[in-house]
Design a protein around this nucleic acid. Structure first.
Length: 279
DNA sequence: ATGCCTTCTGGGAGAAGA
């Protein structure tokens, strides 16, 4: 299975480019973030014509997530347990949830397409929301893998965190003054990994950014950030045979500001495990 | 110090992005 994640920054603005990529690169499962539309506005027909099933979740012009898959998706959920909400002037446990997560089972893997809150600025209520959102994701991940350590889980998407200094090449993003690089955000990312999911792309693609701001010639100067990840439980990590960051997708007409991140998985089916060994 | 660039809605100018 070839699994990809891509913050598309509006599905309607570049659906041709996105479907073309999925077809050309033989993507089996494509998790998308920032579709920036309501479910009823999603161009389902364009994906279906190309042979994909799609599950989407979106309320408005903000946020929005989706998963396209060659095989049908099951057990679709539009939030993980405990996911906090956020709205202007409305915070706390009963704040309305945003469209930042969609999960489904496909090919024996529980795949989550995640758009972690940006944080906006240090000390902003959105920053606290970001940390709470990540803590809830950590709790869900830990509980899932405590119940079944061999469960195949993939948390993929735009995490809006540059986990190491090398993952930030944007000179305007300065430690101590900016989100994405602050110690609490990096600790939240590390805590997620400690809960049992690990970056399965990094070992195969040790360097490279996944996002470049539209402003200030960030792409030509290669002043980007690595903030889009595929985190897999050990059952997923053990199946990885390849990984790519498709930097070329930042080029050309009307690109997203993020590029796709891809892994190849060689998943053993239950038939393989149960097959008696005959010598 | 500010805007830089892009998307969205609504039919302006503003919010949001990271």
């Amino acid at each position: 299975m070839r699994l990809a994640t891509w913050n598309v920054n509006s599905i309607r603005a570049r659906v041709d480019r996105i479907v073309d990529f999925a077809v050309r690169e033989h993507i089996d499962v494509l998790a998308m973030q920032e579709i920036k539309c309501k479910v009823e506005q999603f161009p389902f027909d364009r994906f279906e014509e190309a042979g994909f099933h799609v599950e989407a979740h979106g309320f408005s012009q903000w946020n929005g997530v989706a998963i396209a898959s060659r095989e049908p998706l099951s057990d679709v959920r539009t939030a993980f347990p405990g996911m906090p909400g956020f709205a202007k002037g409305h915070q706390g446990p009963d704040a309305p949830q945003e469209a930042r997560a969609i999960g489904a089972t496909v090919g024996g893997i529980e795949v989550w397409s995640l758009y972690v809150p940006n944080g906006r600025s240090l000390g902003d209520p959105h920053y606290d929301y970001k940390l709470a959102w990540l803590a809830a994701l950590e709790d869900y991940t830990r509980q899932s893998l405590t119940a079944d350590p061999d469960k195949a889980i993939a948390l993929v998407g735009d995490f809006n965190i540059a986990p190491t200094d090398a993952d930030n090449g944007d000179p305007s993003v300065v430690q101590g003054f900016a989100t994405h690089v602050s110690p609490p955000e990096r600790e939240a990312f590390a805590a997620l990994e400690a809960a049992g999911v690990h970056d399965v792309v990094r070992p195969l693609v040790p360097t490279g950014f996944t996002y470049w701001d539209y402003k200030q010639l960030r792409f030509p100067r290669n002043e980007g950030m690595r903030i889009d990840f595929i985190l897999g439980s050990h059952a997923v990590a053990d199946a990885v045979t390849g990984a790519q960051i498709h930097r070329n997708e930042r080029k050309g007409e009307a690109p997203s500001d993020h590029v796709p991140v891809v892994v190849d998985l060689d998943l053993e089916g239950p038939d393989d495990d149960d097959r008696p060994m005959i010598f």
